[in-house]
Amino acid sequence: MADTRVLVTCAGGKIGNAVALQLLEQGVATRALVHREDQRSNHLRERGAQVVIANMMDYQQVQDVMTGINRIYFHPIFDPHALDSTVIFAIAARKARVEAIVQMGQWL
């Protein structure tokens, strides 16, 4: 997995953060997408993640974040416009020629 580069979306959240930390523990090059700087993003950076701040509703930002990525752990944003952000994500991932996507979602 030396050439694997994984993007974890919503890496500042409970599940995305746990996934990113587990990938880092396994030595996987991990890019953590967060929507703001805080203690969780700082902790990810300290553990070796490349932390990027982006808005999942902004196509250009999402496309830029996927540059150089070949696998993605996609956790949809919890937002009234989650479907819109998922479409944005899917279009950007296809354009970036991502090899594999794992998605997990939860609805309370």
Rank of each mutant, 00 (worst) to 15 (best):
D3I: 00
T4G: 12
T4E: 15
R5D: 02
C10H: 05
A11G: 13
G13W: 03
K14Q: 05
A18S: 15
A18T: 15
A18Q: 14
V19F: 08
A20Q: 03
Q26S: 12
Q26Y: 09
G27K: 06
G27E: 13
V28E: 00
T30R: 05
T30P: 09
T30G: 09
R31Q: 12
L33F: 03
L33G: 00
L33K: 00
L33I: 05
L33S: 03
L33C: 03
H35W: 11
H35G: 06
H35F: 11
R40A: 08
N42Q: 13
N42D: 11
H43D: 14
H43P: 00
H43E: 12
H43C: 08
L44A: 09
L44G: 10
R45E: 15
R47A: 06
R47G: 01
V52I: 15
N55C: 09
M56K: 04
M56V: 09
M57Q: 10
M57I: 05
D58Y: 13
D58I: 14
Q60P: 08
Q61H: 12
V62W: 04
D64Q: 07
N70T: 15
N70G: 14
R71H: 15
R71D: 13
Y73D: 01
Y73R: 01
P76M: 03
F78H: 02
F78P: 01
F78Y: 06
D79E: 07
D79S: 11
A82P: 00
L83G: 02
V87N: 06
I88C: 06
I88D: 00
I88G: 00
I88T: 09
F89V: 10
F89E: 06
A90S: 14
I91E: 09
I91D: 05
